[in-house]
Computed example of a mutant assay.
Amino acid sequence: MSNNSETIKALNELLQGEYMAVYSFNNFISRLKDENAKKTLQEVQKQHRENIDKLASYIQSIGGQPDENLGMKGSMGEMMLNMDLGSSSDMEEVVKKAIEGETKGVNMAEKVLRGDLDDRSRDIAGEILEKDRKSIEKLKKLLR
């Protein structure tokens, strides 16, 4: 595989997004009083943790090293999220921010999928994309 380092780089980008999601959901969950909403957000967060495990294992299996550091982009994203939400614990506002974050994650996964990936990497990125889309639907149900 000649483009292995490009594949690892792309998958690590996806991994970063999954870590950002887990951290963001910690923030969202801590703000909510509504137990049903909290439970739904915890389910979505659990899915992101499973995505992390799958991605990290796969990156290692193809000879790469998973980048398990949020980095500057993640730190800045977290800071912006806190500024956006302020001290809000309004369920609708928190859920809307969670949907916004999930949508950014889907866009990032789509970008990775358009890259030059081998079939197995494309399958894994596609699975994550599909799960993230389902998570958005799950979150949208909280707003109905």
Rank of each mutant, 00 (worst) to 15 (best):
V44A: 13
K73A: 14
L14K: 03
A21H: 05
N12Q: 06
F28Q: 00
G86N: 05
K141F: 10
N4T: 14
V112C: 08
E127Y: 00
M108E: 07
M108N: 08
I29H: 05
L113W: 09
D116K: 15
K33C: 04
T7I: 14
N4R: 15
K140M: 13
L32A: 02
L14Y: 04
R144A: 14
D90Y: 03
D84L: 05
K138Q: 15
I8C: 04
M108Q: 13
Q47I: 09
V106S: 06
K96C: 03
L113D: 01
R31W: 04
M20R: 01
I52S: 04
M108G: 03
A98D: 00
K111Y: 07
R120N: 13
E92W: 13
L11E: 02
D123Y: 13
N26G: 06
L143R: 07
N69E: 15
S135M: 10
R133C: 05
D123E: 15
G115S: 15
K141V: 05
K33R: 12
V112K: 11
N26A: 01
Q60K: 14
K138H: 10
K97H: 08
M1V: 12
D119W: 05
N27Q: 10
D119M: 09
N3L: 14
I59K: 01
S75F: 02
S61L: 11
F25D: 00
V95Q: 09
K73D: 05
S61M: 12
M91W: 06
I124A: 07
D53Q: 14
L142R: 05
K111H: 11
S57H: 10
L55E: 01
R133A: 03
S61I: 09
K54R: 13
G126T: 12
D119T: 14
K33Q: 14
N27V: 12
Y23R: 05
Q60S: 09
G105N: 01
K33H: 09
G74N: 04
T103N: 11
I124M: 11
E13F: 02
T103H: 08
A109T: 14
G115Q: 10
K131H: 13
N82W: 00
I29P: 11
D67W: 12
Q47Y: 02
E100S: 06
G115T: 07
Y58G: 03
L117A: 04
V95C: 10
L143W: 11
N26Q: 08
V106C: 07
V94P: 00
M80W: 10
K9Q: 15
E92V: 12
S30V: 03
D116L: 11
P66L: 08
R114M: 13
A98V: 04
E110K: 15
S88P: 01
E68D: 12
K38A: 04
D84R: 09
I8Y: 01
E93Y: 06
L142H: 07
L70V: 11
N107P: 00
K9H: 13
M108V: 09
S61R: 13
D119P: 09
F25N: 01
